[in-house]
């Protein structure tokens, strides 16, 4: 490659060589500029929170807050049972919901179970007690910290539609209501993608 350049350059004289060198230097500058822009951009992380269980939600929020503390842009996409984490009140029943949607919201509330040893609610109580005793941050604390660190919450509109939930049923911290494409757009730029 290089030799062809030299062969071509020699008969045309010094002027052409200088021009080529200038062009190469310009290219170099442009490249280093691009590299700097890339360095300035924050790394991204995105999490899909599909589960509505206390232990899984805690795991998601621990990772989200840790990444946000490391100067990463973090997005959590809440879908299906994950929406229970965002419910404002325990029962999210509205008049507009049909009987099946009402049943869903009665049996799957913001009072999150744990994925193992739930024992009709005794498990979460025991786990919260243990966590408090060992001074581990609770889900409420982690969610508060996540917002302070600008973690972005996206609620899935499809799941909201299926479960009959609207904006008023969910906490104000939700930044966006969007669909799968918004997640994909976010995820393709993310270095870390998790499904919990």
């Amino acid at each position: 490659m290089f030799s062809t350049y030299v062969l071509r350059a020699v008969p045309c004289g010094v002027d052409k060589v200088r021009k080529m060198r200038e062009a190469a230097q310009q290219q170099d500058r442009r490249l280093s500029g691009l590299r700097e822009i890339k360095m300035d951009q924050k790394e991204k992380m995105s999490i899909i929170l599909f589960s509505g269980e206390l232990d899984k939600a805690i795991a998601a929020f621990i990772l989200a807050t840790t990444a946000a503390s490391s100067n990463m842009d973090v997005t959590i996409y809440f879908t299906f049972w994950g929406l229970n984490v965002l419910k404002k009140t325990k029962l999210s029943i509205t008049r507009a919901q049909n009987i099946l949607q009402k049943m869903f919201n009665v049996f799957s509330t913001s009072k999150l179970p744990i994925s193992k040893l739930n024992m009709f609610g005794l498990g979460p109580w025991m786990m919260k007690r243990l966590m408090k005793k060992s001074k581990m941050a609770s889900l409420e604390d982690l969610m508060k910290i996540a917002k302070q660190l600008n973690v972005k919450y996206i609620a899935c509109t499809t799941s909201c539609g299926v479960m009959g939930l609207n904006k008023e049923n969910l906490i104000e911290d939700v930044d966006e209501f969007a669909g799968a494409m918004t997640y994909i757009e976010e995820a393709r730029k993310s270095k870390v993608n998790l499904f919990i």
């Binding site: 840790t66 503390s69 001074k135």
Partner: peptide, 13 residues
């Protein structure tokens, strides 16, 4: 002291 992951990192930040 007494705090678990991720609190030390969050506080450090």
């Amino acid at each position: 002291t007494g705090l678990f992951c991720p609190m030390p990192i969050i506080n450090a930040k």
